[in-house]
Design a protein around this nucleic acid. Structure first.
Lengths: 333, 333
DNA sequence: ATGAAAGCGCTAACAT
DNA sequence: ATGTTAGCGCTTTCAT
């Protein structure tokens, strides 16, 4: 019962009275006589045969593995992204190998692994090292696509939310609800999401003839955003609307505002970006611009899969429009 | 520059003027003369050589891949778990392959993949299919360990929080703060976390001579927990303390309580389990029992790695104590 | 329709 | 210390 050496195609072939090749064909849609196929499948079942992917990979140059490089899953929106991605890729026959780069100072070991596994493709969800990884992978013929964060030089294929549409929707909403002095809490300068959203928001405000938004760095963290919020609110002029470039920071901001004794929505507006599930919680009720999660993931996957199938990936960014979600954090009532 | 066929050990060997084996040795800590090693590494660098893991896997029977089977990442605690796990495994030289089983109705395809990749080990974080997966993997000699949720039959190795200590700590805390009529919002009956926490809590309350806790099923979802909360509060007797077996449900419960016009902490106590980051948010402030995340992950990883190294995995569950974290959701002030 | 044989890139005896 | 050789388990011509 307990055989530690898993069955090979040869074992199956023998039991079924055919050759290895026949077994291989049976599994890969080749030409096999109906009755032979029958016998093969029966033998495989009895031996609990599962084709060894490593061996297959060696001869086909396909691993069925997609690498996902991501800093960490601490942004509330990422787990949702990963779930969706994993499902979509599974449907296409691929599995996700996780490369969290949180503590990783060094790029080389990461690169060695990324390339060593002969991944069929790589998805970059964090910007750190993006350019380097992308070029190295390209040199090895591995398609790379950036997800959510993109390459601002537009040299790498990417898919993200339409940051312009989002930032403008938030800006317009703030303006329409009578806010005058805006502020932006942004993240890192390497993050396209941060940079683009900040810029488009700022430009929209400027075009409306309103005072230039104040800026503060929330560093993509709870603590950092708390500090940024306190600095903004304690400063002059005091903003009456704060746009946080991610929901994580929006959520942190709302709470910091409350702790300062103000009521988000009534005393000042707060908005985030992405529409992570937590932003819909009653205790949070964060106005935000919803990233079209399924569309973004589907686009990412289909572009990547097409590239794996030989249709070269264009170094273009697909920007998908979402929609504004207005919640209590920005409504005066 | 742009060669699509990645360099092989033979390419490196030629360029360095040595044999394939020498290259292999250089990469695997074998005996290589210093100057030869020099030349090999230099050649490897120039050719951007990275050993093909699939080929290596074929001859060593080691893939350096660990499978993680998990329903989805929607419980706030899971992303934290995965981050930690990924880091710990990376340190040990392994990468995580994600098998989210959310939509998966069928076990067989999952099993085919799980075994086809010749994973070095498997971590099961969700209970669905656990027994079946574990036995199949065992038959193939693949170590399997359950994380967070465990096998209640204790037939599979596992690591989890000390649910008894946790449930009792919550119970005691409720009792000490003067609560009398308790309730439990639990999840699925296949989930050991749900079952054990419910049972130990109930027993502790019974031992204290208090009325038997009311029970409601929150189905591990926000919506389900909302309904469960409304049912409990609308019923007779009305509980003055609700223990939710996960933070996800605790967070949902708190908010449902508020929406009913009650103030968590003052009007009735709410507690969760795990200490997911969101439970610490001021807007949530959920009393909970903190899972010792690092310890749980370290134990899981070290047991698994030991098993991979040949020290058989005992079908025992490691239960690690955490600590009570009291927040506003359970304090009357 | 099927089998034989070569080869994918690596490691691991075994010789030397 | 290093090269030679034989696999690891699969796919894929090429014959038949």
């Amino acid at each position: 019962m307990n055989k530690l050496r898993p069955a090979t195609s040869l074992d199956v072939a023998k039991l079924a009275g055919v050759s290895k090749s026949a077994v291989s064909r049976a599994y890969n849609g080749g030409y096999v006589a109906p009755d032979a196929r029958q016998k093969i499948m029966e033998a495989a079942r009895r031996l609990r045969y599962r084709p060894n992917q490593a061996a297959r990979s060696l001869s086909t140059n396909r691993s069925n593995l997609i690498g996902l490089a991501i800093t960490a899953l601490d942004n509330q929106f990422y787990p949702e992204l990963v779930d969706e991605l994993s499902d979509a890729l599974a449907l296409a026959g691929f599995r996700l190998v996780l490369f969290t780069t949180r503590g990783q100072a060094d790029l080389e070991p990461l690169l060695d692994e990324l390339l060593g596994f002969r991944l069929d493709g790589v998805i970059l969800a964090s910007t750190s090292f993006a350019t380097r990884v992308a070029t190295e992978c390209a040199d090895s013929g591995i398609p790379v696509i950036m997800l959510n964060n993109i390459d601002m030089g537009e040299e790498i294929a990417g898919v993200c939310t339409d940051n312009r549409a989002g930032a403008e929707a938030i800006a317009q909403h703030f303006i329409e609800t009578g806010r005058r002095q805006m502020a932006v809490i942004h993240g890192f300068d390497e993050s396209s999401a941060s940079v683009e959203r900040t810029r488009f928001f700022t430009e929209a405000i400027a075009r409306a003839g309103l005072p230039y938004p104040l800026l503060a760095n929330g560093q993509y963290t709870f603590a950092g955003t708390g500090e940024a919020t306190r600095a903004l609110i304690g400063g002059t002029p005091r903003p009456d609307a704060i746009f946080c470039v991610t929901d994580l920071m929006g959520i942190a901001c709302i709470q910091a505002v409350r702790e300062l004794g103000f009521k988000p929505g009534r005393d000042l507006a707060v908005a985030g970006f992405d529409n992570a599930q937590a932003s819909a919680w009653p205790a949070i009720a964060l106005t935000t611009y919803a990233t079209p999660l399924k569309e973004v993931v589907d686009s990412c996957v289909s572009r990547l899969v097409a590239a794996i199938d030989g249709h070269p990936l264009l170094a273009r960014t697909t920007r998908l429009a979402g929609h504004l979600v207005v919640r209590a954090s920005s409504t005066p009532d």
